[in-house]
């Protein structure tokens, strides 16, 4: 939980387009680098990012090794109802990291 950082405005007017930003601490090892002993460093990247708004998927992304370490993504959402924005990152090892934020819509 502490590895992920999300930014969602706490309150918004109904119908307003808000900025959402999400970042997670992850090395995003490309698999193209050599270690000090000349051995290849195995690939370890986050391949999938999903954002759901009250359970419905509103944005997702598929990442390749060209995405920087500590992958960052920002996108927009229409504030429709008060509710929870849930974020989920899945990496090559199948580990899932989650974060969430509440938004109050008036």
């Amino acid at each position: 939980m502490t590895r992920a950082l999300v930014s969602v405005p706490p309150a918004a007017k109904r119908g307003e387009i808000v900025d959402v930003r999400a970042m997670i601490a992850h090395p995003m090892e490309t698999g193209y680098r050599m270690g000090p002993n000349g051995a290849e460093i195995p690939r370890d990247i986050i391949t999938r990012f999903v954002c759901t708004y009250d359970g419905a998927e509103v944005f997702s992304a598929e990442f390749f090794p060209a995405v920087s370490a500590n992958p960052f993504v920002s996108f927009n959402l229409i504030a429709t109802e008060s509710g929870t924005l849930a974020f989920e990152w899945t990496d090559d090892k199948g580990q899932i990291e989650t974060a969430s934020a509440e938004i109050v819509v008036s």
């Binding site: 944005f59 997702s60 992304a61 959402l77 229409i78």
Partner: peptide
């Protein structure tokens, strides 16, 4: 990236 009408 996958988007939809809810992104605005």
């Amino acid at each position: 990236f996958r988007l939809g009408p809810r992104n605005g």
